[in-house]
Write a protein that binds this DNA or RNA. Structure first.
Length: 160
DNA sequence: GCCAACGTTGGC
DNA sequence: GCCAACGTTGGC
Protein backbone atom coordinates (compact mmCIF):
# COMPACT_ATOMS: atom_id res chain seq x y z
CA UNK A 1 0.00 0.00 0.00
CA UNK A 2 1.57 3.24 -1.13
CA UNK A 3 1.57 6.35 0.99
CA UNK A 4 1.37 9.99 -0.03
CA UNK A 5 1.32 13.59 1.09
CA UNK A 6 -0.96 16.26 -0.38
CA UNK A 7 -0.88 20.00 0.22
CA UNK A 8 -3.98 22.09 0.61
CA UNK A 9 -4.86 25.56 1.71
CA UNK A 10 -7.22 24.99 4.63
CA UNK A 11 -9.39 27.88 3.44
CA UNK A 12 -10.06 25.70 0.38
CA UNK A 13 -10.15 22.25 1.92
CA UNK A 14 -8.94 21.40 5.41
CA UNK A 15 -8.71 18.27 7.53
CA UNK A 16 -11.81 19.56 9.34
CA UNK A 17 -13.79 19.45 6.11
CA UNK A 18 -13.03 15.72 6.05
CA UNK A 19 -13.51 15.20 9.80
CA UNK A 20 -16.89 16.89 9.89
CA UNK A 21 -18.27 14.48 7.30
CA UNK A 22 -16.39 11.25 8.00
CA UNK A 23 -18.28 9.16 5.47
CA UNK A 24 -18.31 11.70 2.68
CA UNK A 25 -15.97 11.28 -0.26
CA UNK A 26 -14.32 14.59 -1.10
CA UNK A 27 -13.07 15.26 -4.62
CA UNK A 28 -9.40 16.16 -4.65
CA UNK A 29 -9.55 18.49 -7.62
CA UNK A 30 -7.58 21.39 -8.95
CA UNK A 31 -4.13 19.82 -9.24
CA UNK A 32 -2.59 21.69 -12.17
CA UNK A 33 0.97 20.45 -12.19
CA UNK A 34 2.02 17.48 -14.27
CA UNK A 35 4.31 15.85 -11.74
CA UNK A 36 1.67 16.07 -9.04
CA UNK A 37 -0.98 14.85 -11.46
CA UNK A 38 1.10 11.82 -12.33
CA UNK A 39 1.31 10.91 -8.65
CA UNK A 40 -2.47 11.29 -8.34
CA UNK A 41 -2.81 8.80 -11.18
CA UNK A 42 -0.67 6.28 -9.31
CA UNK A 43 -2.86 6.32 -6.21
CA UNK A 44 -4.78 3.15 -5.41
CA UNK A 45 -7.92 2.64 -3.38
CA UNK A 46 -6.95 2.34 0.26
CA UNK A 47 -3.73 4.35 -0.04
CA UNK A 48 -3.31 6.76 2.86
CA UNK A 49 -2.42 10.42 2.47
CA UNK A 50 -0.98 12.96 4.87
CA UNK A 51 -2.86 16.26 4.69
CA UNK A 52 -0.55 19.28 4.80
CA UNK A 53 -1.97 22.74 5.44
CA UNK A 54 -0.09 25.45 3.53
CA UNK A 55 -0.38 29.22 3.18
CA UNK A 56 -2.13 29.62 6.51
CA UNK A 57 -1.55 30.46 10.14
CA UNK A 58 -0.75 26.94 11.35
CA UNK A 59 1.41 25.36 8.68
CA UNK A 60 2.02 21.63 8.91
CA UNK A 61 0.54 18.14 8.72
CA UNK A 62 -2.94 18.04 10.21
CA UNK A 63 -4.12 14.45 9.73
CA UNK A 64 -4.63 11.64 7.27
CA UNK A 65 -7.19 10.58 4.66
CA UNK A 66 -7.44 7.63 2.28
CA UNK A 67 -8.26 7.08 -1.37
CA UNK A 68 -11.75 5.74 -2.09
CA UNK A 69 -11.86 6.37 -5.85
CA UNK A 70 -8.88 6.17 -8.14
CA UNK A 71 -8.00 8.79 -10.73
CA UNK A 72 -10.68 10.01 -13.13
CA UNK A 73 -10.97 13.19 -15.20
CA UNK A 74 -11.06 16.22 -12.91
CA UNK A 75 -14.54 17.69 -13.49
CA UNK A 76 -13.31 21.18 -12.63
CA UNK A 77 -11.23 21.43 -15.78
CA UNK A 78 -14.41 21.52 -17.89
CA UNK A 79 -16.41 23.70 -15.49
CA UNK A 80 -16.42 27.23 -16.85
CA UNK A 81 -17.49 28.52 -13.43
CA UNK A 82 -14.52 26.93 -11.69
CA UNK A 83 -11.26 28.65 -10.91
CA UNK A 84 -9.66 25.40 -12.12
CA UNK A 85 -11.29 25.59 -15.54
CA UNK A 86 -8.78 24.81 -18.30
CA UNK A 87 -9.79 25.85 -21.79
CA UNK A 88 -6.84 23.96 -23.26
CA UNK A 89 -7.80 20.56 -21.88
CA UNK A 90 -9.09 18.35 -24.72
CA UNK A 91 -12.44 16.77 -23.74
CA UNK A 92 -11.50 13.56 -25.54
CA UNK A 93 -8.20 13.39 -23.66
CA UNK A 94 -8.58 15.24 -20.35
CA UNK A 95 -5.38 16.80 -19.14
CA UNK A 96 -6.11 16.74 -15.39
CA UNK A 97 -7.14 14.05 -12.94
CA UNK A 98 -8.90 13.92 -9.59
CA UNK A 99 -9.28 11.27 -6.91
CA UNK A 100 -11.83 10.93 -4.11
CA UNK A 101 -10.73 10.77 -0.49
CA UNK A 102 -12.34 10.21 2.89
CA UNK A 103 -11.33 11.05 6.43
CA UNK A 104 -9.08 8.77 8.46
CA UNK A 105 -7.57 10.77 11.31
CA UNK A 106 -7.02 14.25 12.66
CA UNK A 107 -3.94 14.89 14.80
CA UNK A 108 -4.36 16.38 18.27
CA UNK A 109 -1.65 18.84 17.28
CA UNK A 110 -0.45 19.85 13.85
CA UNK A 111 3.04 18.60 13.09
CA UNK A 112 4.64 21.90 12.22
CA UNK A 113 6.96 22.58 9.33
CA UNK A 114 9.74 23.30 11.81
CA UNK A 115 9.23 19.87 13.38
CA UNK A 116 9.23 18.22 9.98
CA UNK A 117 12.42 20.00 8.96
CA UNK A 118 14.05 18.75 12.16
CA UNK A 119 13.41 15.10 11.30
CA UNK A 120 16.54 13.61 9.72
CA UNK A 121 14.46 10.90 8.07
CA UNK A 122 12.72 13.51 5.90
CA UNK A 123 15.80 14.93 4.24
CA UNK A 124 14.81 13.66 0.81
CA UNK A 125 11.12 14.48 1.10
CA UNK A 126 10.27 17.20 -1.41
CA UNK A 127 8.06 18.98 1.11
CA UNK A 128 10.93 20.14 3.27
CA UNK A 129 13.30 21.06 0.46
CA UNK A 130 13.89 24.71 -0.26
CA UNK A 131 11.73 26.14 -2.98
CA UNK A 132 9.76 22.97 -3.53
CA UNK A 133 6.26 23.56 -4.84
CA UNK A 134 5.23 19.98 -5.51
CA UNK A 135 1.73 19.55 -4.09
CA UNK A 136 1.36 15.76 -4.25
CA UNK A 137 4.28 13.48 -3.44
CA UNK A 138 5.03 9.91 -2.43
CA UNK A 139 6.01 9.17 1.16
CA UNK A 140 8.19 6.16 1.95
CA UNK A 141 7.39 3.80 4.78
CA UNK A 142 10.32 5.18 6.74
CA UNK A 143 9.21 8.76 6.24
CA UNK A 144 5.65 7.86 7.17
CA UNK A 145 6.79 6.18 10.36
CA UNK A 146 9.01 9.11 11.31
CA UNK A 147 6.14 11.55 10.85
CA UNK A 148 3.56 9.52 12.73
CA UNK A 149 5.83 8.56 15.60
CA UNK A 150 5.33 10.99 18.45
CA UNK A 151 8.16 13.38 18.99
CA UNK A 152 10.44 12.15 21.75
CA UNK A 153 10.02 14.13 24.92
CA UNK A 154 13.18 15.93 25.92
CA UNK A 155 14.39 15.28 29.45
CA UNK A 156 11.91 12.46 29.93
CA UNK A 157 12.92 9.82 32.43
CA UNK A 158 14.46 6.85 30.70
CA UNK A 159 12.80 3.49 31.01
CA UNK A 160 14.83 0.53 32.09
C1' DG B 1 2.26 42.26 1.51
C1' DC B 2 6.88 40.79 0.11
C1' DC B 3 9.66 38.22 -2.67
C1' DA B 4 12.55 34.03 -3.87
C1' DA B 5 11.93 29.99 -6.24
C1' DC B 6 9.58 27.55 -9.37
C1' DG B 7 6.92 25.68 -13.71
C1' DT B 8 4.99 27.05 -18.02
C1' DT B 9 4.66 29.57 -22.23
C1' DG B 10 6.00 31.12 -26.54
C1' DG B 11 9.15 33.55 -29.76
C1' DC B 12 13.15 32.58 -32.07
C1' DG C 1 16.16 23.37 -28.07
C1' DC C 2 17.07 27.71 -25.80
C1' DC C 3 15.75 31.03 -22.65
C1' DA C 4 13.39 35.43 -21.25
C1' DA C 5 9.07 36.71 -19.60
C1' DC C 6 5.39 35.66 -17.02
C1' DG C 7 2.14 33.88 -13.47
C1' DT C 8 1.97 31.13 -9.31
C1' DT C 9 3.38 29.07 -4.94
C1' DG C 10 4.15 29.41 -0.32
C1' DG C 11 6.98 30.71 3.79
C1' DC C 12 7.81 34.64 6.25
Amino acid sequence: MAKWLAKTEPSECSIDDFAQHPDKAIVWEGVRNYQARNFLREMKTGDEILIYHSSCKHIGIAGTVKVVREAYPDPAQFDTASAYHDTKSPPDNPRWSAVDMVFVSKFANIITLDQLKAMPELGSLSLVQKGSRLSVMPVSDGEWEAILTPMPTLNAPTQD
